[in-house]
Computed example of a mutant assay.
Amino acid sequence: MSLHDQTKLLIPGPIKMSPEVIGALGQQSVSHTCPTFTDSFRDSLTKLRRVYGADSTKGIPLIISGSGTLGFDLVGSNLIDSKKDNVLVLSTGFFSDEFHEAISQYYVEDASKQVTRLGAPNAGATVSIDEIERELGSKQYDLIVMTHVDTSTGVLLDVESIANLVHKVSPDTLIAVDTVCSLGCETIEFDKWGLDICISASQKAIGAPPGLSLGMVSENALKKHESLSSKSGSYYTSFTKWLPILRSFESGKSAYFATPPVQMIDSLRIALTQILEYSFDNQTGIHARIAKHKQTSDNFKTAVVEQMKQELVSGSLNNSAHGLTAIYVKDPPSVIQYMAKHGYTITGGIHKDIKSKYIRVGHMGISACDDSLNDVSGCLQTLSEALKQ
């Protein structure tokens, strides 16, 4: 047993991986054009569609070597006309602002005119639907960008309601969603909600190792990419380069642009398979896994609020994410240190307005879904003890 195995990792990603996912990482390398890897890549792309709730024949799923942050560049370099497009960014925390920064500094010529940021009134809040509607009605926006779960605050955005609003009042606006901290533990209905591009990563609720940028792209977004007259451009993140590769692998034929990480993609395949085969509460698949995350999250948050008398950064269960909990505490460093001393790795805050006032506990993947591990229940007991110190 390694030193890492002795610590229960409960941060909002990377998360603990299943033995089967870990095992895939220990395989000998194979050629990235051999039939074995081609089958693994195809299976991963097909399963990713199912996790996103996307049609098996429309659009294209994304699996590209890189972090979740690479998704900012995938959106910016492929879907924004740098000279004329207007972009509306909804901000609910640190990572929303990172997305805003990426677009404003790298993908438009005049951010002061082309990019509008609608921020939550305070840390832990969301942007009101009325404010979004007023802004969408003020001028034509070509793209709206939002973060489903901002990992800095544990806030869950109602993407479905916002998407419905966009389709109603600004139907030509493309919808981009950061699902890095929501894919695999929150409800996402890519087709049903009419989303255009989602970006994500492998190391959070998906339960695979860090290093893969994931996503889903709609037919409308692909048409927009093809029609762009001026774009900032990027060689590595160009859809022009990647889409033929991904389409080829999804059809069962190998192709080459950049060497894919063969072990990581096979570990992703196993992680996605485990998600789609998961059973809970008379359900099987992604909806069962989401339901289990919700149960784990609600139980955890209820104990924190009602038994430990602590306040959630997100304010209430209604707008709280189900993959992590952000908690106001008196002395975050001492709580984190106490938890580490007793075998639990949690983390502190990163939101600029409140980062010295709170802690964050992740409960995603097998830690949230396998009660026999006792990760979350043990964390609750230890956290209760830490708060008494």
Rank of each mutant, 00 (worst) to 15 (best):
M1H: 09
M1D: 11
S2A: 13
Q6L: 15
Q6N: 11
T7G: 01
K16I: 09
K16D: 13
S18T: 15
E20K: 11
I22H: 04
L25P: 01
G26Q: 09
S29Y: 06
T33L: 13
T38S: 05
R42E: 02
S44T: 07
L45N: 07
T46G: 01
K58I: 03
G59V: 05
I60M: 14
P61N: 07
I63A: 08
G66F: 10
S67E: 12
G71K: 02
F72H: 13
S77R: 03
K83T: 10
A102N: 10
Q105I: 07
Q105P: 01
S112N: 14
V115I: 09
G124H: 01
V127K: 04
V127I: 09
E133L: 05
E135I: 10
G137V: 06
D142I: 05
L143R: 03
M146A: 11
T151V: 13
T153L: 10
G154R: 00
L157A: 08
I162G: 01
A163S: 14
V166M: 11
K168E: 15
K168L: 15
D172F: 05
A176S: 13
A176R: 04
T179V: 11
T179G: 04
C181T: 05
S182F: 08
C185D: 12
E186D: 05
E186M: 05
I188S: 05
I188A: 08
D191N: 13
G194T: 08
L195T: 02
L195Q: 04
D196N: 12
I197S: 02
S200P: 08
S200D: 11
A201T: 09
A201D: 06
I206Q: 02
M216W: 04
A221Q: 02
K224Y: 02
S229G: 15
Y235Q: 12
S238G: 10
L246M: 12
L246F: 08
F249R: 00
E250V: 00
S251P: 01
S254G: 11
A255Q: 04
T259V: 09
T259R: 09
V262F: 02
Q263A: 09
D266R: 10
D266Q: 11
D266K: 11
L268E: 05
I270E: 10
I275V: 09
I275S: 08
Y278T: 04
Y278D: 05
Y278M: 06
Y278A: 02
S279E: 15
F280M: 09
G285A: 11
G285F: 10
H287T: 12
R289V: 13
R289E: 15
R289H: 11
A291C: 05
Q295H: 12
T296V: 13
D298M: 08
K301I: 03
K301M: 15
K301A: 13
V304S: 01
V305W: 00
M308G: 00
G315N: 06
G315M: 06
L317N: 08
A321S: 14
G323S: 07
L324G: 01
A326Y: 00
V329C: 00
D331N: 14
V335C: 07
I336K: 02
I336Y: 02
H342A: 12
G343E: 08
Y344I: 14
Y344M: 11
I346F: 00
K352V: 12
K357S: 14
R360F: 04
V361G: 01
G365Y: 07
G365S: 14
G365H: 04
L373A: 10
N374D: 13
D375Q: 07
G378M: 07
T382I: 07
L383R: 02
A386H: 00
